[in-house]
């Protein structure tokens, strides 16, 4: 019974959370209130853990919840459930676009979808900048330490052509150094 419930809840998240990544958070908060599978505190901790380990929060939370509630089998069920709607969607959308790629309406939809996709990613970017550079207050409260590090990362990426892996590893090392120095 638990397995079916796990499958049902995570399938719903996979089916309805548009905007990816943090878009799954409200659904997960709702889950933490509806069932005693995990606490909101565990969810916030997993958000942090997900940024240091591979995989986005939605996926990691599915694996974590499944494992905690029904063991290894549960984690497979929950993880499968959250990606299954994607599999179905992608196959249908790919088929339609391959078959009707010259169709006027399909072209118009794609033409309008791309700016929306950009806007979704841009909103994530603004949220992150607001949180980390402006300390969630206003444009007058600049966190100069974070701004400086961000600019350094930018210089590494643009002028030294360092890839994403380099930047991520560098930031993890810096985070550990800061922890050792200040705590």
């Amino acid at each position: 019974m638990k397995i079916i419930l796990l499958f049902y809840e995570f399938f719903k998240i996979g089916l309805f959370s548009v905007g990816g990544g943090l878009a799954t958070l409200p659904f997960l908060f709702y889950l933490s209130q509806k069932y005693n599978w995990f606490t909101p505190q565990e969810l916030m901790m997993m958000l942090g853990v997900s940024s240091v380990t591979p995989g986005p929060i939605g996926l990691n939370m599915a694996t974590f919840t499944g494992f905690k509630t029904a063991g290894f089998f549960g984690s497979i069920i929950a993880t499968t459930a959250i990606v299954l709607p994607s599999l179905i969607n992608v196959i249908i959308v790919s088929k339609i676009f391959n078959k009707y790629c010259d169709n006027f309406y399909v072209k118009s939809i794609l033409y309008a979808l791309k700016p929306a996709g950009c806007a979704l990613l841009a909103s994530v970017l603004f949220d992150l900048i607001y949180d980390l550079i402006f300390n969630q207050k206003s444009v007058f409260f600049v966190n100069y330490e974070n701004l400086f590090i961000c600019i350094i990362f930018g210089l590494f990426a643009i002028f030294l052509k360092k890839g994403p892996i380099f930047l991520i590893i560098l930031s993890i090392i810096l985070g550990i150094i800061k922890y050792i120095l200040f705590f």
């Binding site: 942090g48 940024s51 970017l125 992150l128 900048i129 980390l132 590090i149 930031s171 550990i176």
Partner: peptide
């Protein structure tokens, strides 16, 4: 680590 990783994610 979360904070610094997010800075490079920006």
């Amino acid at each position: 680590i979360f904070e610094y990783v997010n800075l490079s994610v920006i």
